[in-house]
Nucleic acid binder design. Sequence first.
DNA 1: AGTAACATACGAAGGTCTTCGTTGACAATA
DNA 2: TATTGTCAACGAAGACCTTCGTATGTTACT
Lengths: 130, 130
Amino acid sequence: MSERVTTPRPTDGELAILRVLWDRGECTVREVHDKLSASSAIGYTTVLKLMQIMTEKGLVERDESERAHVYRPALSEQKTQKQLLGDLLDRAFGGSATKLVLQALSTRRTSGKELAEIRSLLAKLEEEAR
Amino acid sequence: MSERVTTPRPTDGELAILRVLWDRGECTVREVHDKLSASSAIGYTTVLKLMQIMTEKGLVERDESERAHVYRPALSEQKTQKQLLGDLLDRAFGGSATKLVLQALSTRRTSGKELAEIRSLLAKLEEEAR
DNA sequence: AGTAACATACGAAGGTCTTCGTTGACAATA
DNA sequence: TATTGTCAACGAAGACCTTCGTATGTTACT
């Protein structure tokens, strides 16, 4: 009876795979493995297994029409980021987006252009709030 | 020989405990359990065990001088938030703080006062960047 | 002294995550 | 046709997380 409505939070390993998928649109296991093994030693079957599990979880979708199955993300990068962010917000920031934003801004060096971009959104939000 | 330098990322359960600890400064297991069991059914020994493990991991520090041990967070709320945020930034946002901030701002409703606060920090950052 | 309440410690069970070896199917090539 | 390479599937091991029952010790009261 009980069906999962929302996708589960991706784990670290799953997120690494999703990043490749988001970047390329769709991939075979081999492509993902080639990409990932450039920066870390990881076995082919490890990636395969992970992607199989991600299929079960609904994190990715699989096209089995060819011998080498083709995977693509089930959720967009933005949607996933939004979910993860909301999650962290509740778990660690007590729901205060402001605290989170302030923390993020003061942590990482941000370029002038990026600051301008943020200010632009800020202005728009203030406009809407009126 | 090999000693952990940084504290590990707290799990969900550990974070729930840390939030109580940050709020109160220091607590016994009973106090934490009383607080947590208000919102979720969780056994006393479960909380105890978690806090013992957190002590081993270095997430909290323990004063054993009294019969009921007293725990306090090893890292401030801010430091932990910073760590978790940086973590998420790398794992899910490809390191772009701007993307994260924009996402956070557009997701949650933010009050005018908060927006002002953010803009104030923004101005300071732009000043510094010059 | 005896008992009830409360504390930590310990161990184990059940779940998830990560890892990879092995197997068997299929394809390309010698 | 025999061999070599590539693929998905499966199963299992080891680490960690969460959960809690049980054991054992201490305190406080009757």
